[in-house]
Computed example of a mutant assay.
Amino acid sequence: MTNDERAVRRLVRDRYADAASDGCCGGAETSCCGGGDSGSDASGTDGDADRIAREIGYDDESLETVEGEANLGLGCGNPTAIADLEPGETVLDLGSGGGFDCFLAAREVGPEGRVIGVDMTPEMIEKARANAGENDAGNVSFRLGEIEHLPVADTTVDVIISNCVVNLSPAKDRVFEEAYRVLRPGGRLAITDPVRIDSLPDGVRGDPGSLAGCISGAESPETITTLLEAAGFVDISVELDPDSREVIDEWHDEYDLGGSLLSARIEAEKPAE
């Protein structure tokens, strides 16, 4: 790991440790996705997190079903809506945060299924495990680890989900290689992540807060496709969500990001043997 990679991980870990403690990214009114200090100074509330969740694709039933402080308003889409989960499947959530998507996935796979959440922030793992108790989620477990080095055995997962996390990695090639490794043959990837559709403003590209805020680490759809192909995936789809423009515009109060970034639904499969 290079010094730059270590610095990125430290920056991201500190930011999301604050989010685990304070919710809505350390008290910001907008989601954790955003430009750090450029965000609003208003106090975050559960209502803010619910508003953000509705804007990025979650319905009221999902919000009412999950107990505790699992919904932290950190995402850019709803990966469980595109994953087509089936009862009995094993699901892995990359960057599981407070566990919100894990608990939604657990409803779909049922008591015979299994959901594993991996997050590199100890504070998030602690919060997620507490939330699992509140949700009586016996088929959900959380593991401390990096998505570039998953603490998961080979070929043991049916579906991988993730919500606004892969862009944070300084080594996305390794993320997709690890995802491929842990998936069973015929397994699938269904994630939501911001992608870059145009160049970013000069004031954003070199800003560390923008990197930790899901902005400057976003890749183009073409790059995402190339990385997935190199890892071995097939049937790759990167579908832009034009409705995400308004949400992304909230990520920075100085720059209009909606012309540079959009949320995307990214799907791929591991070939069946």
Rank of each mutant, 00 (worst) to 15 (best):
A153F: 03
P87H: 09
E273M: 10
K270L: 02
E148Y: 02
M124Y: 00
E222R: 13
G97T: 02
S162W: 01
C25K: 12
E64I: 01
G186V: 14
F100C: 02
N135I: 03
E108D: 13
L11P: 07
Y255Q: 13
P87E: 04
E178H: 05
D235L: 05
L189Q: 00
V195E: 00
G217Q: 10
A17V: 10
E89T: 08
G97R: 09
P122K: 12
G213W: 05
L228P: 03
P194D: 01
H149F: 06
N3W: 02
E29I: 07
A190Q: 06
N163M: 08
G97D: 05
N78S: 12
Y16A: 10
A190G: 02
A171D: 09
A42R: 15
V115P: 00
P201E: 06
E269I: 05
T192L: 02
E64H: 10
T155D: 15
P208Y: 11
R205I: 13
T90P: 06
D256W: 12
D253N: 15
I197H: 11
G26Y: 11
D46M: 04
E126M: 09
R51T: 15
K127N: 10
E86F: 08
S169C: 07
L150M: 05
C214Y: 05
V166Y: 02
D158T: 04
S62A: 13
I160F: 00
M1G: 13
F100P: 04
D173P: 00
A264L: 05
M1R: 15
V234G: 03
G73H: 04
Y58V: 08
T192M: 06
P170K: 04
R114H: 07
L189W: 11
L189T: 00
E55A: 14
L257Q: 07
S38E: 09
L189F: 03
D93R: 01
